[in-house]
């Protein structure tokens, strides 16, 4: 393996920014490459009103007073101080599932095996306390990004080297025909995130302990005038925009508690921002 420093946003190889995802996955053998490309020099990291360089670290975002509350709090409650110093915004949006079967290399539907992909979801019939309560029939993984939920609530847009897209369109539910969980094309680099100002916003996160844990349920809400968007982390294989209430959830035998937690946090979030 070699490590190159990118001199432009066009290159061959696997991009690495803070490496907090890439390095553990490489070491676990879940990711393989001949060429790592350090993109820290070519991805912007500056912060301006309504505009954030995709290379900004979560630590930069958690203490910038110009950032909307929902995004600041999502960053402040994500991961640990060391990881927030290292991890970038784009890398956070592109993190892989924390599904323990996937991380331990079980040959599930999201893993390549000798002749294609695995054909089982081990979590559905196995241990799924932390798994999805929406859209969980094919893969029951729960999207772990607090930050993505916040950006979805803000209706943020991404600018990449190839296109501009709403953050929702970065993600896709895996299917039998196409197992990918993002729409990012090989070689496409995320450069910037933009969003309009909002009147009030909030992020609430339920976790196993008060700090330093992935979201069991994260609730992001942002209000502009009479219009409020609510997005959830930890409840579906992708960041989940809530339409209506939680009654349409389809929990698994051992994670129905997440529906109650989500319902309570959504109610509290709406009350907090006067929605």
């Amino acid at each position: 393996m070699e490590l190159r420093r990118a001199s432009s946003t066009t290159f061959d190889g696997l991009p690495v920014h803070g490496g907090t995802e890439v390095v553990p996955l490489l070491r676990a053998g879940l990711l393989r490459t001949d060429t790592l490309v350090d993109i820290r020099g070519v991805v912007p990291r500056d912060i301006a009103p309504g505009r954030i360089g995709a290379g900004a670290t979560l630590a930069q975002l958690e203490c910038d007073p110009g950032i909307p509350e929902v995004l600041r709090e999502a960053c402040r409650l994500a991961a640990s101080p060391q990881l927030r110093n290292m991890g970038s915004l784009a890398g956070n949006l592109l993190q892989s599932t924390r599904c323990w079967y996937w991380r331990l290399g079980w040959p599930c539907r999201l893993h390549r095996v000798a002749n294609g992909y695995g054909d089982e979801c081990f979590a559905r019939d196995g241990e799924h306390r932390e798994h999805a309560i929406f859209a969980n029939d094919y893969c029951a993984s729960a999207h772990p990004s607090d930050v993505a939920a916040a950006l979805l609530a803000l209706d943020a847009r991404l600018r990449t080297t190839a296109r501009e897209l709403p953050v929702a369109e970065l993600y896709r539910l895996p299917t039998e025909a196409d197992r990918r969980t993002t729409t990012l094309e090989p070689g496409e680099v995320i450069l910037e995130v933009t969003f309009d100002e909002c009147d009030q916003s909030v992020y609430l996160k339920a976790m196993e302990r008060k700090r330093w844990a992935f979201p069991l349920v994260g609730v992001a809400a942002a209000r502009r005038g009479a219009k409020t968007r609510v997005a959830l982390a930890g409840v579906a294989p992708v960041p989940w925009l809530l339409s209506g209430e939680l009654d349409s959830a389809t929990p698994l035998p051992r994670n129905a508690y997440k529906v109650d937690v989500a319902r309570a946090l959504v109610k509290r979030a709406r009350a907090t921002i006067g929605a």
């Binding site: 690495v16 907090t20 390095v23 553990p24 350090d38 110093n85």
Partner: peptide, 19 residues
């Protein structure tokens, strides 16, 4: 494994030395 890189605490177990 916490160390300071340019005065900021980072995790040296998931930092590539070449980075």
């Amino acid at each position: 494994c916490t160390v300071l890189v340019d005065d900021e605490p980072v995790l040296s177990c998931i930092t590539l030395v070449h980075a």
